[in-house]
Every structure is written in structure tokens, then in C-alpha cells.
Nucleic acid binder design. Structure first.
Lengths: 277, 277
DNA sequence: TATACTAATGACTGATTGGTCATTTGTCAA
DNA sequence: TTGACAAATGACCAATCAGTCATTAGTATA
């Protein structure tokens, strides 16, 4: 096992128990039996480790499920097989699943939030593809609602699997959920998530923000905030967006000023994206 | 508004944005426009604030929903009214709902975990009571599964309400979920969560651990751990449980030793409970 | 005005954090 | 045995944290 893998597995265990913030690099290195310096030979930072973990296990989880769904030819048992695959993967990588289910994406790590959003969309597509294959056009009115129901089922029942030490019959669970999903697909008629709503939600918000819109948002934010440092930082960044004149270090510093204030984190991220810092 | 309320509301806003760990007391006091010292006149610690917040808003949320369910006499619209109440409360207290939904209970705050578990059980009972009232004995086979489905529905759709800034028609959503719940109640036949399983899960685990069982668990843990400090601490605490001889300060210190190691936190909590430190 | 009291402050402490880097250790070929 | 290089170490640093406490500001009574 490579050192990187060793660190990742040690870290995963601790992250699942304590969360990202509450687990220190020191703890991880002690648990892995290496020194702190050795950690930083494998990873540039703690954030890089976290991002690496998410990428690695998320892709593994998604490809596991995707493979099962894609390779299953008959439609009769597809739902059952899907749930089986999902829950067995969760059980296999239970430490990661715990992190995934809790979605404790409250760390000031913007990259991680968009990463999770991205993987969430991949999962949506797997489920949607599966539902369309089984019900083709029958459930066109409720297909997006069905995605959310399936995800809701998985979420609640995963709690049982992950956080209680009781032996569970995943076969029966998958049967039960396949039955429920089929019931909803066939008989549910009320549409809540329309095609339009679904796409509004899933458009990555920052792609839609044009430079002009962002400038307006900055204007508005300047009015909102009280702190003079924030006001000035926003003003300078606004001018920088119109006509670049400041050095990269100054721009970075100004963005850091914004990041220090929670209400400005969102806009800081957008500005950073726009200025390509 | 009292100072306590002012702090709680300021804190809630920041907690919803950043989580408990990532929000410092300094930030809270700045946001509330008071000094750090003033904070500690109202709350003994940050943990006390967090626990107070959970208690206050959780009780408010639960009683809101409970009142609607209890006061609704006809059964025909009860499911719809329940979902309406739930989602409207979430929208009203959206900051708290964000915290509640994320359940970021990874803080090393054992009291908080059992608190959340307690409130979760209260919610279960409201849902179960409602389902039994509507379907009386019809759905005795699937009543516990239905609780989990209802909670799953609420969880997934709450994401839309809380984390996307899109205008949503909660009326249609509640209609849609009432329809789905009714479908499952009437036609779903497979039982996964049996009466027995449900009770196993909901018994607070530590009540079940007798002194003898705990002693055995300590024995086992001594074998598992490598660290000599942990081994010795466990041994001393084991002897303390059999025949008390150490001073409270020493016992506290030994338990702290265990708490420093994530794999021993669970057992540390149980020992602490048993020795009544 | 003087006194007594509470409310509020913010500089300070000790602990912990993520991250660095001069130093040591281990492993080769020559 | 030597020397050159890479791998690994852990003392150290600046930053940040929760929490404290000597001090000050504000207010009411005499």
C-alpha cells in the first residue's frame, strides 16, 4: 500500500468518527504511524487530502452503482439491483458513506461544495437514466420527483445501516424499496419538480452570473455591509473587474478580506472565479 | 429582546452558514454587536449556547407540527396538513432548519448527540401517531417503514427549500407528498422495519449496557489498543469500577486520556456514565 | 456630588491548529 | 568505508481558538 493510500484510509476512519474539522493532521499521522512531515510529502494540505478522498471514493461509489445499472438488461429486477448495489457499496465503504450521508460540507472549502454538487448530479443522472429505461415515457410527469424520492429512501435507510450496529437484511430492504419506488412510479400523479424547476436547480449558479450581473451584485453588497474594510475591498475589486490595475497579491488580499466575513463568502467566490485568481 | 435572544439569533445565522466548529465566539459577538465578555455573562460556554439553541428551536419546531396534527380532526387532509406544517416551519426558521437537516453532530459533544436522538424519537412519535390515526390497523405491517419514508421525503425536499433560492409552491409539494404517502400506506406490503427492529434501534444504547457488559467491553478494548497510556487508563478505570479507590480528579484525567483517542470515545462516554463523574 | 452597584469591555492566557524546515536516518552505488 | 541522495522526522511558527478577569462605563440611590 502506498503512503498516500495509507494516509487516506487512516484519515477516512477518523473523519467518519469526528468530521473534517475536528480531526487534526496530527491525529491522522499518529493513527497512520507516520510523522507530520511525511504527511506533507504526500499531500500539499489537509484540504487536498479531503478533496482527494471525496474524489476517490465518490467515483468508486458512483461507478459501482452505474455498472450494476448499465449491465442489467432486464427491467423487472433493475430497481431491486440498484438498491442492492447502493446499500452494499455503502456497507463496504461505510466510513466514506458516513461522511457522504452527513454531507458536512460546512468547511470553508468552496471547491468541495461544487465538487459535491457535481457528484450529486452524476447520481441524479444514474437514477434518472434507470427510471427512464424502466418506465420509458409512462412517468414523464413525475420522473424528477421520483429521483428525489429514491434519494430520500436511500438517505433515511442508510442511517440504519451506518449508525446502528444491528444486523440488517439488505435483500429485504432492497425488495421493499423497489416495491415502493414502483408504486410511486406507476400511481403517483402530482408533479412538483417540473422540468423547468429541475434545470433551474441544477444549473451551476456561477456559470449563469455574467460579469455585469456580478458587478450589480457587488454594488448591492456594498450597500448591505457595514464594515468599512469590506466596503473598500468590494469597491477596489469592482474597479479591478472593470479595468485591471492591482497586483495579484493585492487582489488576493482583498478577496481574503471578504472571505473573513461569512455574508461575503459567496460573492468572494464569484469574484475569485471571475478574476481568475 | 433579551441579550440571550440576541446572541442566539446572531449565532444561529452564523451556524447555519458555517457550522458550529467553524464559527468562533468572537464572530458571534461581533455579529451581535457585543463584547466577548458579555457573551459569557449570558452563556457559560459555547456548548451551552449550542445546546440551548437546539432545545429552543427543536421544541418550537416539534410543537408547531404536533399542534397541527393534534388539532386536525378529519383524517382526509391530515397528511397534507402535516407536510404543510413541516415545510412552513422549515421556511420560517430556515436557519435552524439548515442546521437540523445537516445534522452536523460531529462535534465532540456527547450531550448533543443524545439530545438529537431524543428529539428524533419525538418526531417519530408524532408521525407514527398520525399514521395510526389515519390508517388505524390497516398498515400495521408497514407503519415503521412509513415513518422512515415520510422522514426521507421531508429530508430530500427540504434541500430544495433551504439551499436553493427559488420560489416554491409548498402547497403543491405537500399535496404531492400526501399522495405519495397515502399510496405507500395503502399498497406497500413488504415489511423491512419490524416492531422488534424499530425498538432495538430506538432503545438508548447506553441504558442497555450493564456494568458487567461494560467491564467486558473494557477488557476487549484493552486488547485492541496499542498505546500503553490507553491500556493503563482502561485498566485503572476497570479497577475503579469494581472497587472505587481513586480520587475524582484522577478518574477524570483517565477518562480524558481515553477521549484523546477517537476509537475510545464511545467507551469513555459509557465509563463516565457508569462512574457518574 | 459621592457612593455603591451592576453591566460591559477587550487585552490576555494557555491550548491547539495547519503548515514549515533544518536536521537526522536509511539506502544505495562506487 | 565513503559519499550522495532521498525519505522521514519532530521541534518549531504564526494564527486562531475558547474562556478569564482586571478594569471601566453606566446608572441608581442617598
Amino acid at each position: 500500500m502506498s503512503k498516500k493510500q495509507l494516509i487516506m484510509e487512516s484519515a477516512l476512519e477518523l473523519f467518519a468518527q469526528q468530521g473534517f474539522d475536528a480531526t487534526s493532521v496530527q491525529q491522522i499521522t499518529e493513527h497512520a504511524g507516520i510523522s507530520k512531515g511525511a504527511f506533507y510529502l504526500s499531500f500539499k494540505s489537509k484540504d487536498e487530502l479531503i478533496n482527494g478522498l471525496i474524489d476517490h471514493f465518490m467515483l468508486s461509489l458512483i461507478s459501482d452503482i452505474d455498472q450494476v445499472v448499465k449491465n442489467h438488461e432486464t427491467h423487472t429486477e433493475l430497481l431491486y439491483e440498484f438498491y442492492q448495489a447502493a446499500f452494499h457499496t455503502f456497507q463496504k465503504h461505510s466510513d466514506f458513506a458516513k461522511i457522504f450521508i452527513k454531507e458536512q460540507s460546512k468547511t470553508p472549502n468552496e471547491e468541495l461544495i461544487s465538487k459535491i454538487h457535481h457528484y450529486d448530479k452524476l447520481i441524479d443522472n444514474i437514477i434518472l437514466g434507470m427510471l427512464d429505461r424502466i418506465y420509458s415515457e409512462e412517468n414523464s410527469q413525475t420522473r424528477y420527483d421520483l429521483i428525489y424520492c429514491v434519494k430520500g429512501f436511500i438517505h433515511t435507510y442508510s442511517h440504519l445501516i451506518l449508525f446502528f450496529n444491528v444486523p440488517l437484511d439488505l435483500h429485504t430492504l432492497s425488495r421493499s424499496l423497489a416495491e415502493k419506488t414502483a408504486l410511486l412510479a406507476k400511481h403517483s400523479e402530482t408533479t412538483f419538480i417540473t422540468e423547468e424547476l429541475y434545470h433551474t436547480i441544477n444549473e451551476p449558479f456561477h456559470v449563469h452570473v455574467t460579469k455585469e450581473q456580478l458587478l450589480e451584485m457587488i454594488e448591492q453588497k456594498i450597500e448591505e455591509v457595514d464594515d468599512s474594510t469590506l466596503k473598500e475591498s468590494l469597491n477596489l475589486l469592482k474597479e479591478q473587474m472593470i479595468e485591471p490595475s492591482l497586483s495579484p497579491a493585492i487582489v488576493k488580499g482583498l478577496i481574503l478580506n471578504l472571505n473573513n466575513h461569512p455574508a461575503c463568502k459567496q460573492i468572494a467566490y464569484l469574484i475569485q472565479d471571475c478574476l481568475e485568481v
